[in-house]
Deep mutational scan, measured.
Amino acid sequence: DYYEVLGLQRYASPEDIKKAYHKVALKWHPDKNPENKEEAERKFKEVAEAYEVLSNDEKRDIYD
């Protein structure tokens, strides 16, 4: 669930989505996790995908 990936509720505002994305993206950035790079890359891609969908009103409506 994209909301879960970003740690958000379904009623999150666009500002909340952006803030959550930056927080979680920093947490899972591969450069910040050199000891667990493969998992970090996978999680970072999930976070980016979730943000791409939830930050676009049209894609978010379809997802919801």
Score class of each variant (00 low, 15 high):
G7Q: 12
E4Q: 15
V47R: 01
W28D: 07
D57E: 11
V53H: 10
Y51V: 01
N33M: 07
K23H: 10
Y2R: 03
K43Q: 07
D1T: 14
W28M: 12
R60H: 04
D31A: 09
E46D: 08
Y3A: 02
A40K: 01
P30R: 05
A40M: 03
E35N: 12
S13K: 11
E58F: 04
V5P: 03
W28L: 14
A40H: 07
E58Q: 15
N33G: 06
L26G: 12
D61Y: 13
Y11S: 14
K45S: 10
D16K: 04
G7V: 00
K37Y: 13
L54W: 00
V53M: 08
R60C: 00
K37R: 15
N56P: 00
R60E: 04
V24S: 11
E4S: 13
K37L: 11
E52H: 11
K23V: 11
A40I: 09
E52Q: 14
L6M: 09
F44I: 07
K27T: 15
P14Q: 15
A50F: 00
Y2D: 07
I17Q: 04
W28K: 04
I62L: 14
G7L: 00
K27A: 07
L26I: 10
E41Q: 15
D61L: 13
N33V: 06
Y51Q: 02
A48T: 15
F44P: 01
E4D: 10
H29W: 04
D61W: 08
Y63S: 04
N56K: 12
K27W: 02
A50Q: 01
Y2K: 07
L54P: 00
S13W: 00
E52T: 13
S55M: 14
D57I: 08
Y63L: 04
N33I: 04
Y51K: 06
A20V: 01
E46P: 05
E4F: 03
Y51C: 02
D64M: 03
D31I: 06
E41M: 10
K59I: 04
Y11A: 13
E35M: 09
E58R: 09
W28V: 05
H22M: 12
E58Y: 11
V47P: 00
A12D: 03
R60I: 02
E4L: 02
A48K: 15
A12T: 04
H29L: 10
V53C: 14
R10T: 09
F44K: 09
Y63K: 14
V47E: 01
A20T: 01
E52V: 08
L6V: 01
A50T: 00
H29V: 06
E49I: 04
D57Q: 11
W28R: 05
R60T: 03
H29D: 09
D57A: 12
A12I: 00
F44M: 13
D57W: 08
S55C: 13
D1C: 15
R60M: 01
E49S: 08
Y3I: 01
E39L: 12
V24E: 14
D57R: 10
K45V: 09
I17M: 02
K32I: 05
E58S: 11
K43F: 08
K23C: 11
K32V: 09
N56T: 09
P14I: 13
D16E: 11
K23R: 14
R42V: 15
N36G: 11
E15S: 08
